[in-house]
Nucleic acid binder design. Structure first.
Lengths: 133, 133
DNA sequence: GTAGGCCCTGACGCGGACGTCAGGGCAAGG
DNA sequence: CCTTGCCCTGACGTCCGCGTCAGGGCCTAC
């Protein structure tokens, strides 16, 4: 199949596939017209990439999975490098979630405090100047 | 004080202050040499911006706070527009945290599955080819 | 013949918040 | 006089994953 069909089957665009090829992630054969040609195996690789991307993995992080599939494994994540990516991502997610929860708490506290302060000196009396109250 | 000193006091760089000025967020007076001049009030505004930025707020989101301070309020977050930004950010954080937790769960499940699959067909026997097992 | 429709390459745009470099000025200190 | 150190403007680079032209080719259908 050609690039348009593969892109459609994977729910993406030709531009994206060319980009992956430029990154060395999904190389393509060419037909006698110079058009890129793909097979079902490429679709499998692409689906692996898209699934990971949709979960927030960076493009480079998908490489071990793709290479694992290309090495002949039925699943892209059984290789040690893929497992390492999973684990690293889990740690990143935990760190990020923790950080965000901290921020959330801080913002919530600020909101409560600011609401109280605003209520203590309600609009529009305190709109202008600091001595109005 | 001049740009270098203000930047140092706020723990940032002159480039950042020029950027804020270009965005209309922190305009500066000029001395007779054309150098930017700031006072303690500008430091207060800048600290407000940096605090919010450090919590993940976008630059534009800090604008209501800065304008609130500039309007004469002792705190930048007592104005309605600032409160609205807080509330919107809280909602964003909740949505993001929820999404990330979902992803975390998915990744964790995949990791467990992949580890089991890898153990069922351990290295290096299954390293090459699919028929080795 | 020509109008689609698909493909090609190359290259710029985007968003956000700056970093960094080029080229130049002005003032104080040795 | 010359260096050092601060400042200025303008403009390009960064990161990421593409989107979006611009300009051109080939095949098919009408």
């Amino acid at each position: 199949m050609r690039i348009g069909e593969l892109a459609a089957r994977a729910g993406t665009t030709p531009r994206t596939l060319r980009y992956y090829e430029a990154r060395g992630l999904l190389p393509a054969r060419r037909d006698d017209h110079g058009h890129r040609t793909y097979d079902a195996r490429d679709l499998r690789l692409l689906e692996q990439i898209r699934t990971l991307r949709d979960s927030g993995f960076g493009l480079e992080e998908t490489r071990p999975f793709v290479e694992c599939l290309r090495a002949g494994h039925p699943e892209g994540d059984v290789c040690p490098a893929s497992l390492a990516v999973y684990r690293r991502k889990l740690a990143e997610l935990d760190a990020l979630i923790g950080e965000l929860r901290g921020v959330r708490g801080t913002v919530a506290a600020q909101l409560v405090r600011a609401e109280a302060a605003a209520a203590e000196c309600p609009e529009p009396r305190c709109e202008l100047g600091g001595e109005t109250w």
